[in-house]
Design a binder for these strands. Structure first.
Length: 703
DNA sequence: ATAGGGTTAG
């Protein structure tokens, strides 16, 4: 085979006076210009074969480049067929194919091809490494990446370790979570462009080392090192996660001052940052002012609402997104499902699930995990289980969501079985997993197991219990009537107890009528969090339940004197895909008069069937709100249930979610309603599910 | 040639 060089080319062709026009001065530009579609490519390809130019790199490579990199993914196989026809592909040809495969989402093929390149003794050049290292990054192929790094070091002298190669090495290590190795390459660089910094940042972002990103960026600014839009995107992500609004706003000013507002990715990052810092209005204003909003921008804004618990706004925006004809992605759906889960919006979530199936959205691990969480939080734990069992791969979050969901729905033993399965499948539990495990022990009344897990999590797995873990155990002991042990645990645990812990103890004192420890618990709670009404109410109703009515009234008066208001309870009910919200004594609903009529009717009917109002509670509440003529029969869950009764077809299940624990009177009423109206009623309160059916509740009156 | 926006449990 004769090796041509470009300079020999024109003279060679000027002698042939055939069909072929004079070989162009710049074949690359010409070929690239001609190849706009696959069809063009075919024509040029055919022409090059006919003119026997295909074996000339200067002609073949532009063709290859067009097929592998410039046209859509589908031509990568075509590109490879061209490549295989080359008799002696040189390093540039290999480089193009290696990059092509990576870009076409087949980075494994890039690695195979690189191996072939070495076997065929084609010397890689400094352009080969960025491509092949990118393939390693995509695959998180650390071993291959390290081998290539070694190869580069070994061949130093023959080939240059350029700045590009170094950047790629940093990014490769960062993608494989090897931050120390990335940092070592980074620190050894003689010149660091913004790309090097961004590569390093991307690793810290991946691993959630937000402080590192912000710290390094501040250092960068102090040293006057240049940065660009890509750098800012990483830094904004860190600002959001750290709620570092100060730096975030500085970046916003910078963006405005430097006319970078046209960069939609940057604006989306700002939207995300403001939303994560709780500035939803600013985020929304930026979002609304974008000239075009792609799926990522919509997702960022929706997740912003969902993140700050404005779930109804999240769903409303999702609705707007569909009206704007922007197709949601897997990522959008994660936030949407999370909002549905919080709201208990079963119908909407189910619709999302069927949409995912219909549109063939990819069931990523995250998305499936969200589905599991959503179904479990809506009380459909069997569907959650179904989704789980169909997943080809699961991570710790997936297992945790399932364990948690089973536990909350009263299937403690099953939850623990799945925990053991998780260990057997070598998925490492994290601290949240143990919240689920302890919660399972709690709801199943498995006190001994619960104590063991609390000790075992740090002893066997090195996960130190946090205040929340102690909270679960305190609750568990309290429920089981082991009030003294619970109290001792609080005073002896290595973490300072918070108000939540004392409040938990207080609630179990109420349940088991233990006024002495209750008084101590209230004292502690008030010291830590003075203005929380529920605490006073717990102790006062405990007094009432043991016949100490004077103490009960005294405490209520004290509370009134201190100006402590009851925190409002609300209940949600979802009907035909929209979520209705009720508060006690609520008059805000457009159908209010009708709903109150329905409540009166409902109460009358269940009284006939034997329901007796909790007079003690009614009296206390009446005293407290005498001016408002408040009534326990106007608790938010009763309004919501009554609304459900008149708005759904006979026999349909009524699903309510509420923010507080369900009160005793409503619990009694719901049992009777389920019998009288032949309805299943599912109430999700802040702690667990109550499935009311035929006059009884799945919690066995223990919550 | 190398870096970049939105994701999930208490």
């Amino acid at each position: 085979m004769v090796a041509f060089t470009l300079s020999t080319f024109p003279s060679h062709f000027s002698t042939t006076k055939t069909v072929i026009p004079k070989f162009p001065e710049n074949p690359k530009t010409l070929i690239l210009e001609k190849c706009k579609t696959t069809k063009d490519l075919n024509q040029v390809h055919a022409n090059l074969i006919k003119t026997r130019l295909l074996h000339h790199p200067a002609a073949a490579e532009p063709l290859l480049e067009a097929a592998a990199l410039l046209l859509p993914d589908s031509t990568i196989d075509y590109a490879f067929s061209i490549f295989r026809d080359l008799e002696h592909p040189d390093s540039s040809a290999y480089n193009i194919m290696i990059r092509g495969f990576t870009e076409a989402q087949s980075p494994a093929k890039s690695i195979l091809l690189f191996r072939q390149m070495i076997e065929h003794l084609v010397q890689p050049d400094e352009f080969t490494f960025p491509g092949i290292l990118k393939a390693c990054s995509k695959l998180r192929a650390l071993r291959e990446g390290e081998q290539i790094h070694a190869y580069i070091v070994k061949s130093m002298g023959n080939l240059q370790c350029t700045e590009f190669v170094e950047n790629s090495l940093v990014y490769m290590y960062a993608s494989c979570d090897r931050l120390e190795s990335a940092r070592k390459v980074f620190d050894g660089m003689s010149k660091r462009s913004p790309v090097a910094w961004s590569s390093m940042f991307s690793g810290y972002v991946r691993c959630g080392h937000w402080e590192e990103v912000v710290g390094l960026f501040r250092k960068m600014m102090k040293m006057g090192i240049g940065f660009n839009e890509v750098t800012l995107i990483s830094v904004l992500k860190a600002c959001g996660r750290l709620s570092d609004l100060e730096l975030g706003e500085w970046i916003y000013e910078h963006v405005v001052a430097n006319g970078l507002k046209q960069n939609d990715s940057l604006i989306t990052s700002l939207v995300d940052m403001y939303a994560k810092c709780g500035h939803l209005e600013t985020a929304r204003r930026l979002f609304d002012n974008m000239s075009t909003r792609d799926v990522v921008a919509w997702s960022a804004m929706i997740s912003g609402y969902s993140h700050s618990n404005q779930c109804r706004e999240a769903l409303a925006l999702f609705h707007d997104m569909q009206n704007a004809n922007v197709t949601p992605s897997e990522v959008t759906m994660v936030s949407v499902l999370s909002s549905c889960a919080v709201l208990g919006a079963l119908e909407t979530g189910k619709w999302v699930h069927s949409y995912i199936k219909k549109k063939n959205l990819k069931l990523t691990v995250n998305l499936s995990t969200s589905l599991i969480d959503f179904y479990a939080k809506c009380g459909c734990v069997d569907i959650a289980l179904e989704v789980f069992l169909e997943m080809p791969s699961k991570n710790a979050w997936t297992w945790t969501a399932l364990i948690q969901g089973l536990a909350r729905n009263g299937r403690g033993e099953t939850a623990l079985r799945f925990y053991n399965l998780m260990l057997r499948e070598n998925v490492k539990p994290n601290d949240v997993t143990f919240i689920g495990v302890l919660c399972a022990c709690n709801h199943a009344g498995l006190v001994d197991e619960g104590r063991d897990y609390l000790v075992g999590m740090s002893r066997d797995l090195g996960i130190e219990p946090k205040i929340e873990h102690y909270g679960c155990v305190v609750d568990m002991l309290g429920r089981a009537g082991l009030i003294e042990e619970s109290y001792e645990l609080i005073t002896n645990m290595p973490i300072k107890p918070n108000a939540v812990i004392w409040r938990t103890l207080l609630a179990s004192c109420r349940l088991h009528k233990h006024p002495e420890i209750a008084e101590e618990a209230l004292k502690q709670v008030v010291r830590l969090e003075p203005a929380h009404s529920g605490d006073y109410i717990l102790l006062s109703s405990l007094y009432a339940s043991v016949g100490r009515l004077e103490d009960a009234t005294r405490l209520r008066n004290e509370m009134k004197k201190l100006g402590i208001k009851k925190s409002p309870g609300w209940s949600y009910i979802e009907l035909d895909g929209s979520v209705h919200e009720f508060m006690a004594e609520d008059n805000g609903h457009p159908e209010s008069p009708e709903i109150y009529k329905a409540v009166e009717n409902m109460m009358e009917q269940i009284k006939k069937a034997g329901y007796e109002p909790d007079t003690m509670q009614a009296r206390l509440e009446a005293e407290e709100d005498a001016d408002k003529e408040a009534s326990v029969s106007h608790h938010s869950e009763k309004l919501a249930i009554a609304f459900g009764l008149i708005r759904t077809s006979p026999g349909a299940t009524i699903r309510i979610s509420k923010n507080l624990r369900i009160c005793n009177d409503c619990h009694n009423a719901a049992k009777v309603i389920s019998e009288v109206f032949k309805r299943e009623i599912v109430v999700r309160d802040r702690n667990r599910f109550h499935h009311f059916k035929n006059g009884s509740c799945s919690c066995h009156d223990f919550w």
